[in-house]
Structures are given as C-alpha cells and as structure tokens.
Design a protein around this nucleic acid. Sequence first.
DNA 1: CAACAAAGAGCCATATTATGCACTTTAACG
DNA 2: CGTTAAAGTGCATAATATGGCTCTTTGTTG
Lengths: 62, 62
Amino acid sequence: MHFNELIKIVKKRREVLQVTQETLAELSGVGLRTLKQFESGKGNPTLLTLQKITDVLGMEVT
Amino acid sequence: MHFNELIKIVKKRREVLQVTQETLAELSGVGLRTLKQFESGKGNPTLLTLQKITDVLGMEVT
DNA sequence: CAACAAAGAGCCATATTATGCACTTTAACG
DNA sequence: CGTTAAAGTGCATAATATGGCTCTTTGTTG
C-alpha cells in the first residue's frame, strides 16, 4: 500500500471515530506534533509510531 | 500484526526466495546493517525502510 | 578439524524522526 | 466580522535510525 493511501485511511478512520488529533495523540502515546506530521503527509514514521496509532484506531499493520 | 511476527514473515520470505541479506540489501537500497538489525529484531525501521524491503520481496504493507 | 558463507554485533559518524512550544491557517459557527 | 476548535507549520533539541567498517558467531560442507 502506498504511503498516501495509508495516510488517508488512518485519517478517515480517526474522523469516523470522531477523535481529534489531540485526543488520538494522547490515547496512543504519540506526540501531537508527530501525529500532525504524519497525517499531513510530511512524515516517515517508524513502525512503532505507526503501530501505536493504528492500535488505538482498532487497525492493524500487516 | 506484531513486530516479531512481521520479522518472521519477512525473514521467511527472503529465505524462500533464497536471497541473502546482502543481496536483499543491495536490491532494496537499504543498508546491510539496517537490514541485519531489522531481521535480528533490534530495529524500529521507518515505514520507508520497511516498504523498500517488502517491495523487493513482493510483499506489501497494509 | 579446516574453510567458507551467511548472519549477528560493536563502534561511530551522519541523517532523520519524535517531541514540545508557540504561532498561523482553516473551517464552522453565531 | 469575531469567536472557537481543529489542523497545520517553524524552530530547536533529544532520541533514534541509517549505514559503513570490522570482528565474531553460527552453520554447513569437505
């Protein structure tokens, strides 16, 4: 899966759950700045960061 | 998917294809040291690094 | 055992990510 | 227009990934 698609999916999932970036950051333990960078397509997160995010969203990296 | 499972899958896939770490490193453009660290479970690769590796192996991160 | 190939690990320099803080932009209201 | 919430950005620093080189360990084969 392409990077941009991944971002879209994560972003959409967060919005469906009606969670703000700030809340997701807190819940996942990822820095708000990091999350913002990721969602705005300017990041290259580590696998750990991505997993923290997807875990909270009930998603999975495979 | 858990980190360790991911590693196992990648490793197994590489072995099935009978490709050495060295060759995979060259083909994927990832440093040999980085690949070794990843496969030995001591890494936390960036998404880009992981994708470079899985691309060559004909796998996909989703 | 000896020899070889592949994998793992230490050291170290450089590049990049993760993070907080403050500020700006955007969007949706009244 | 003014207000407010959410998202995006600039900047600095700490932490971590990357990658080359070298050495050690492991596994296989004669």
